[in-house]
Amino acid sequence: MTLTRTETVGSAVSAGPTPAGRSARPSRARRRKHLEIALFVGPATIVYVGFVLVPVVLAAVYSLYKWNGFGPLTDFNFPDNYIRALTDPVFVGAIGHNLFIVVLSLVIQGPVAIGLALLLNRRMRGRTLLRVVIFIPYVLSEVIAGLSWKLLLQPDGPFDAFLSAIGLGGMSKLWLADSDVVLWTMFWILTWKYIGFAIILFLAGLQGVPEELSEAAAIDGASWWQIQRHITIPLLGPTIRIWAFLSIIGSLQLFDMIWVVTGGGPAGATATMATYMVQFGFQRNQLGFGSAVAVILFIVSLIFALVYQRFVLRRDLAGSLTQGVG
């Protein structure tokens, strides 16, 4: 393991504090640098390996066995766990629910958030207050927000009372108990919760759009709409692409809000891949099967992330990844 002239961060860490076996005497400064890198990267690496990499590998191993979590792994049954998951209509339905949330997020949340961000970017009275109000749901804990909605949406609960107070009582539905409605209800709650984050992202992106361009366009006679359509939104592209990436990954791994509000019910109508995994892995004591579900979820997210980075984010990321140091 001789170190080449262009040392990367990774090899410096694996070499440890004293790179042995080198003919050239390393300078004091270089040695100190290695030590610094090891000390700064070390703790994060330990945590990352211990709490991310090792569990991922362990889950992959568990997924090959029939295992209830108690005792040693003995009953190798690959690929039964995977076949069982992919042929279970409930799990296939759960994947469908994840995709439903992915598509609705992109198609509805995105445009709404961009629109609100453009509005909030204009100079007007109470702008700061509006920004804060829209951002509050994102800051609330998932459990608190979820329980609040669960209580609000009870039959004849506060939300229905509100509807009838404004004369829309006829629109009341069994928001959480009707399997045809509940996924839309969950999408509404998720939008309420996360749109503030999207808006903040877009607002930050809008600060990077040079004002000279819109001024020049305005002088040329472009309307506000034309400026947004042809100048601001194209320049917001990198932000939109990053937001879409985060939104899709979040939708694929959706768990906590669903778990708190519906637990995946009624009758699996809001089950997602992650709630399915917890239900079967932990609640039914089939950790091997649950791990197989986790691996499937991981692979789906990983493939998506790689493809998205390769084809969509390529230009945005170009130049942001450094080749090496020193």
């Binding site: 009870q154 069994l174 959480l176 108990a177 399997s179 009624p266 009758a267």
Partner: peptide, 8 residues
Amino acid sequence: FNEGFLAT
């Protein structure tokens, strides 16, 4: 059963 029992 009560209304909305599936989510109760």
